[in-house]
């Protein structure tokens, strides 16, 4: 199973987890699985029209998936995705 690392400000909407195991063979499927498990995340990550918000970056390793195949980027077992805002907002409980 791949995992998604959650930035601190979003952890309250992800059951307090820093990392969430997800199923899916693509980045899009994995993100869908994440928001299915934690629906509160959805409005923080996506616009009303269902696109990733412009300041939300998803990294596979060191690579921004937008520079790969976007949501169609293939995921392997044990891959780790990271959700990173393009700026440093800052939030700790």
């Amino acid at each position: 199973m791949a995992t998604i690392r959650i930035p601190t400000p979003l952890r309250p909407y992800a059951g307090g987890n820093a990392e969430v195991p997800v199923s899916g063979n693509t980045v899009g499927a994995a993100l869908n699985d994440l928001t299915a498990r934690h629906p509160d995340l959805r409005k923080h990550l996506y616009t009303d029209s269902g696109e990733l918000r412009a300041f939300v970056n998803v990294f596979l390793g060191q690579e921004d998936v937008r520079h790969m195949q976007g949501e169609n980027t293939a995921l392997k077992e044990n891959d780790q995705l990271r959700i990173v805002p393009s700026v440093a907002g800052g939030a700790m409980g």
């Binding site: 979003l10 939300v56 805002p85 700026v87 907002g89 800052g90 939030a91 700790m92």
Partner: peptide
């Protein structure tokens, strides 16, 4: 302030959830 803890307003803080 930003309207949520997770935001793209560089330099601004969501005071309720930040240090």
């Amino acid at each position: 302030q930003p309207d949520a803890p997770f935001h793209g307003l560089e330099g601004l803080k969501h005071m309720d959830t930040a240090i």
